[in-house]
């Protein structure tokens, strides 16, 4: 096991897959000569050259569509969209071309491409550089959506996404690229479907994904030490499809659920998880499930306002205490 950073894990997955298959390429803004805004493609340009490590113009719709078109002929492009906010410009191609081509061609064409993008709010980047958009991607038929919460997942999910014949959107996080964690030394493929129990517990399930897994883990620690509440943390690394079985299993055990998301509440991961709980295990519930989410505002620049807009582990603790009638 190597203890490496999230960006290093992503870089390693690129490197291994590009060394194995000459049709694996990567493309995006500043990913080549500059080495990538988050270093996720560092050193690849020198190793694989400009034909396979493509510095693109700032044309998200254009280069995303170009990658998708190449994938129709068996090329496996890893398309980096520097910030998820810019993905709005690429969504026509992602949704109308990549996600639908297999269906509307009756299975003749497929778009085996990977879209990677930094989602999440960082520090005072303002309304147009701080969006969380996973909710938009997870509602699209034909598109898989995964979101790694640690370096092992970042490595293994990318490896699997490259090999998978379906288009996969990988939602990363600006604040997590320097996070360290253990990654297996040998080749490792993380499942693109399912969920992980990140911490076992018995009294309440805290559902998180990507950065909110860490709020949940921290909250579980506090709940255990200060309040004697045993919280189970479920990591929903696959947002589409969501793991119905995993959600049902944990809620059937703990009978209570809190869903923590950095995104705004409407039409989001929380609403979807609660719908699944209703459909799968409503009568297992001892209390109504609760969502912890950000405020429904364009992200403010001001530091204090920004902090107020985004939840953290304390909000998760508060939600659980409320659920137990302790707050």
């Amino acid at each position: 096991m190597a203890n490496i950073m999230y960006w290093e894990a992503i870089q390693r997955a690129h490197d291994e897959e590009m060394a194995r298959d000459p049709l694996v390429i990567c493309m995006g803004e500043d990913i080549g000569v500059a080495g990538g805004t988050y270093k996720a493609t560092k050193g690849l340009y020198e190793k694989y050259g400009p034909l396979r490590v493509m510095d693109t113009p700032i044309s998200e719709g254009g280069f995303t569509g170009l990658g998708i078109g190449a994938s129709f002929l068996g090329v496996r492009p890893i398309i980096e969209i520097m910030s998820v906010n810019f993905a709005w410009l690429a969504m026509d191609q992602m949704f109308n071309s990549a996600a639908k081509v297999r269906y509307m061609s009756g299975g003749q064409l497929t778009a085996p491409c990977v879209f990677r993008s930094a989602g999440g709010a960082a520090h005072q980047l303002g309304a147009q550089h701080s969006a969380r958009m996973e909710k938009v991607f997870m509602g699209i038929a034909g598109l898989r959506v995964v979101t790694p919460s640690n370096p092992k997942q970042a490595y293994g999910l990318l490896k699997s996404a490259i090999r998978c014949d379906d288009p996969v959107f990988i939602n990363e996080h600006e604040l997590m690229y320097n996070m360290k964690g253990e990654v297996p030394d040998g080749e490792y493929f993380h499942p693109l479907e399912g969920s992980d129990v990140a911490r076992a517990g018995t009294d309440v399930t805290l559902f998180g994904y990507n950065i909110s897994v860490h709020w949940c883990l921290k909250a579980a620690e506090i709940l255990d030490k200060q309040y004697g509440i045993s919280a189970e943390v479920v990591d929903l690394y696959s947002l589409s499809p969501l793991d119905r079985e995993g959600i049902k299993k944990s809620v059937s055990k703990t009978h209570r659920a809190v869903i923590a998301e950095e995104d705004e509440a409407p039409v989001g991961v929380g609403s979807e998880v609660i719908a699944i709980i209703n459909e799968e295990c409503f009568f297992e519930l001892d209390a109504a499930p609760v969502r912890v989410h950000s405020a429904l505002v364009p992200q403010p620049y001001n530091h204090t306002l920004e902090k107020a807009a985004i939840p953290d582990h304390e909000d998760v603790v508060k939600a659980v205490l409320k659920l137990f009638g302790k707050a």
């Binding site: 034909l51 170009l66 078109g69």
Partner: peptide, 17 residues
């Protein structure tokens, strides 16, 4: 206009292969 970049991508694949 959707097919424009797809066509360029197909050409990119031809170039690679």
């Amino acid at each position: 206009g959707g097919p424009f970049p797809l066509a360029a991508g197909i050409a990119k694949a031809i170039q690679l292969k």
